[in-house]
């Protein structure tokens, strides 16, 4: 139910996969909201994984839904935090202390996976070596190409830039370095003529 089949798109748009256990000395799992379901399935696929795993989890709108199940996985460490951004320093420290043989698993929203992937890539792990699985909301993290401000959890096209207030349309063009899709002024050639916002993939 939490899985969504994204339609085929352009080459810069990320393609998310399905998590599977890989051999590794240690495992770092980062998930938000319904992303917890992918971790629960991952643990089921290999019951030896969790004793070597660190989990960073952000429930977002799901509240307590998955907490008990996650606690029962017996992870070496389970951190449940209020937001991804609050945990960035913690994540950087974990990556700094990481050794060869670390496996990374990301699941949940595109915003969470994109940002965590960027941190891992900055720490020297190739993005192609990181596993991902999309679950839950199809909301996007958008960068305004005009003011460069980020608006997270964008659910409609067009939307209003939370920084400069321009009405932006949602492109599929994606930057791993910015961990965001590109938003471009929708009424530049016809000021004030802003189409009615439509929910993404509706």
């Amino acid at each position: 139910m939490s899985k969504f089949e994204f339609p085929e798109s352009i080459n810069s748009r990320p393609v998310w996969g399905t998590l599977e256990p890989r051999p590794g000395k240690s495992h770092l799992m980062i998930a938000d909201a319904e992303g917890a379901e992918a971790l629960l399935e991952l643990a089921k696929a290999d019951d030896r994984l969790m004793s070597k795993s660190t989990i960073l989890y952000f429930p977002k709108g799901t509240g307590e839904t998955y907490l008990e199940d996650l606690e029962n996985l017996g992870a070496a460490q389970l951190y449940v935090g209020p937001s991804y951004s609050a945990a960035v320093a913690r994540l950087r420290r974990i990556l700094q202390d990481a050794h060869m043989g670390l496996q990374i698993y990301l699941s949940g929203t595109e915003s969470l996976m994109g940002q965590a992937m960027r941190e891992a890539a900055d720490a020297g792990i190739p993005h192609s070596a990181i596993q991902t699985e999309h679950r839950g909301s199809v909301a996007r993290r958008m960068q305004c190409v005009h003011c460069k401000g980020i608006t997270d959890d964008v659910m409609t096209d067009p939307f209003v830039c939370s920084h400069c207030g321009l009405n932006l349309f949602v492109r599929d063009h994606y930057s791993r370095r910015i961990a965001a899709y590109q938003g471009v002024c929708v009424d530049a050639e016809n000021p004030g003529n802003v189409p009615e916002p439509v929910e993404l993939y509706s």
């Binding site: 080459n11 810069s12 190409v145 460069k148 492109r171 930057s175 791993r176 590109q182």
Partner: peptide
């Protein structure tokens, strides 16, 4: 096109918005 957005992309990624050619 935006260098600031496209910097770090590979050949296929930065050309992604071009229709048909791919």
């Amino acid at each position: 096109w935006s260098l600031d957005f496209d910097i770090g992309m590979n050949f296929f990624e930065w050309h992604a918005p071009v229709p048909k050619a791919n």
